[in-house]
C-alpha cells in the first residue's frame, strides 16, 4: 500500500510537469467547457421576469458556477487515452510495468485535478463572495459532504468512462459509446437544466440514473437544497453505483486484456 502511494506521488508529479508543458492546449480545453455558461445565459433570459420554478436569476448563476466547478474538478478523458493506447499498441508498454495500468491513467488525471484545483478553487470562492446575487452559505457539515460527493462524482465518471473506453478492445468505433454517455450526462446530470426543472418523465428517469451523482448531487448539497437525510441517502446510492461500476471495470478489464493478448490491436 505504501509502495503504491509512492508510485502515485511520482507519477502524479510527472503528470503535472507534462501538463504544464502543454499548458496552451490545456488552457484551450478549459476554455472549451463553455456549455454550462451557455445554458446559464439561456436560463437567465427566462428568469428575467421572475423566478423559474424554485430558481431565481441569482440561483441560476450560483448553480452554474458550482456546476462549472464540479465539471472541471471531475474532468475525465481516459476513454480517449485508452482508445489511443489500444490502437497504437502503447498499452503494451504500460502492461509491462509492474503496476496496474489504471493507476498510471489515474495519476495523470490527478495531476490535472491538482492544477485545476489550484486554478479554480480561489476563483470560484471569490466569485461566490463578490457577486451579490449568489447566495451560497454552506454549513461546515455540508462542506464536508460536498467534498465527499465531489470525490464520488469523480470516481463515478472515471470508472464509467474507463469501462466504456475498454470497448475499444472489441470494436473500433467504441468512442461513440462515450459520446452518447456524455450527452446523457449533460441532460440527466443537471447541465442542461437543474434536475428540479426537468419536466416529467425526464425528472423521474434522472433520479434512477447515475448521472445525477456525477454532477448535480454535489452542487445541490452546496446550494443547501438537500436535508441531511437526503444527503446521506444520496451518499449510499452513489456508493452503490461506485461499487457496481468498479465491478464492471474489473470484469471488462479481465476479459479485454485476454482479448487484447489474443488478437492485439
Amino acid at each position: 500500500m505504501r509502495k503504491l502511494f509512492v508510485k502515485y506521488l511520482v507519477l502524479t508529479r510527472r503528470g503535472i510537469t507534462v501538463q504544464l508543458e502543454y499548458r496552451m492546449a490545456m488552457a484551450i480545453w478549459i476554455l472549451s467547457a463553455s456549455f454550462p455558461l451557455v445554458m446559464m445565459a439561456v436560463w437567465l433570459s427566462l428568469a428575467q421576469n421572475g423566478p423559474v420554478g424554485d430558481f431565481s436569476a441569482g440561483d441560476f448563476v450560483g448553480y452554474y458556477l458550482l456546476s462549472f466547478y464540479v465539471r472541471q474538478m471531475t474532468a475525465v478523458w481516459v476513454a480517449w487515452e485508452l482508445d489511443y493506447d489500444i490502437r497504437h499498441g502503447d498499452l503494451n508498454t504500460k502492461l509491462l510495468h509492474p503496476l496496474q495500468p489504471i493507476h498510471e491513467y489515474i495519476s495523470f488525471n490527478l495531476a490535472d485535478k491538482a492544477i485545476r484545483g489550484i486554478l479554480f478553487t480561489p476563483v470560484v470562492i471569490a466569485l461566490a463572495l463578490l457577486l451579490p446575487q449568489i447566495q451560497i452559505a454552506p454549513t461546515p457539515s455540508n462542506l464536508v459532504f460536498f467534498v465527499l460527493a465531489l470525490t464520488g462524482a469523480w470516481i463515478l465518471r472515471y470508472l464509467a468512462q474507463f469501462s466504456l473506453g475498454m470497448f475499444t478492445f472489441w470494436f473500433s468505433q467504441a468512442l461513440v459509446l462515450t459520446d452518447v454517455f456524455w450527452m446523457l450526462y449533460l441532460l440527466f446530470g443537471g447541465s442542461v437544466a437543474p434536475l428540479e426543472l426537468l419536466p416529467e418523465p425526464l425528472q423521474t428517469i434522472a433520479f434512477y440514473l447515475p448521472f445525477r451523482f456525477m454532477l448535480s448531487f454535489p452542487v445541490e448539497i452546496l446550494m443547501g437544497r438537500l436535508t441531511t437525510p437526503e444527503i446521506l441517502n444520496g451518499m449510499i446510492i452513489s456508493a452503490l453505483w461506485c461499487l457496481g461500476l468498479f465491478g464492471a471495470y474489473r470484469l471488462l478489464w479481465a476479459r479485454g486484456i485476454r482479448h487484447f493478448g489474443a488478437f492485439g490491436a
Binding site: 420554478g53 426543472l197 419536466p199
Partner: peptide
Amino acid sequence: GTTIFFAH
C-alpha cells in the same frame, strides 16, 4: 433540450 426550456 429545447423542450425543457419551453416547459417553463
